[in-house]
Amino acid sequence: MDVGQFYAAVAGINFTLLGLWWVAVTERRQLREGGPRVRRMAYTVSLQFLIPGALSLLAQVAPDIAAVWRTAFALAGALGAASILMLSPAVARENEMTRRGARLLRIFGIPLYLLIAVYALIPFQGMSLTPLQIEGIMLSLLVFLGAQTAWTVGMATPPDSPQALDDQPRVG
């Protein structure tokens, strides 16, 4: 597959997922009205689609000029890791819904974003894939992680529902 076509597809997928996430936030009351920490988690999830989508657009601007796409990938990797680091501690303390999403992003998202940034700055050699193809693989993993995080956060039982109370461990 042509790298330009790949990044065009990834951009389209990410912006579609971002739009669907915004619909989910609008439709699921607990994401919209669950307090500042829950809203931060919803925003953090939206960044998991926005950053890779924007990055995919930037990768198409000048794929033959390494300085352009390398700068974009390095900045996006740093921005993605920083956003998770800044937002996840507060949301992890809110409830199980946000705790699971924050855990997923801290365990998998931060290392993946940092790997994207580092590889953009210092590409290792000796592989049959081009650096832009390797970045594409990592970007695909981010799309998967974003979808998993959106599912985890969006489908979690609201903390004040009867089902959530049934799921709590019983003491005694």
Rank of each mutant, 00 (worst) to 15 (best):
M1C: 04
D2P: 11
G4W: 01
Q5F: 13
A8I: 04
V10R: 14
A11Y: 09
G12P: 05
N14W: 04
F15A: 06
F15R: 07
T16D: 15
L18R: 05
L20W: 06
V23Y: 10
V23H: 01
A24D: 06
R29A: 10
G34F: 08
G34Y: 06
R37V: 06
L47I: 04
F49K: 04
I51W: 11
G53N: 08
A54G: 15
L55P: 00
L57P: 00
L58A: 14
V61E: 12
V61C: 06
D64Y: 08
A67S: 11
A67N: 01
T71L: 14
A72V: 09
A76L: 09
G80C: 08
A82I: 02
S83I: 03
S83H: 03
I84Q: 05
L85P: 00
M86T: 01
L87W: 01
S88H: 03
A90R: 08
A92P: 00
R93E: 13
R93L: 06
E94Q: 13
N95C: 07
N95W: 01
E96L: 13
M97Y: 04
T98S: 12
T98V: 10
R100L: 07
A102E: 11
R103S: 10
L105C: 01
P111D: 12
L112F: 07
L112N: 11
I116M: 14
A120K: 01
L121S: 09
I122K: 05
I122F: 15
I122C: 07
P123Y: 14
F124N: 01
M127P: 00
M127R: 09
M127S: 14
T130V: 04
T130M: 15
P131N: 12
L132Y: 08
I134C: 08
G136Q: 13
I137C: 05
I137K: 06
L139C: 10
S140D: 08
S140A: 15
L142V: 09
V143F: 09
V143Q: 12
V143Y: 03
G146R: 08
A147M: 02
T149G: 11
A150F: 09
W151D: 10
W151I: 14
V153W: 03
V153C: 08
P158D: 07
P159Y: 03
P159H: 01
P162M: 13
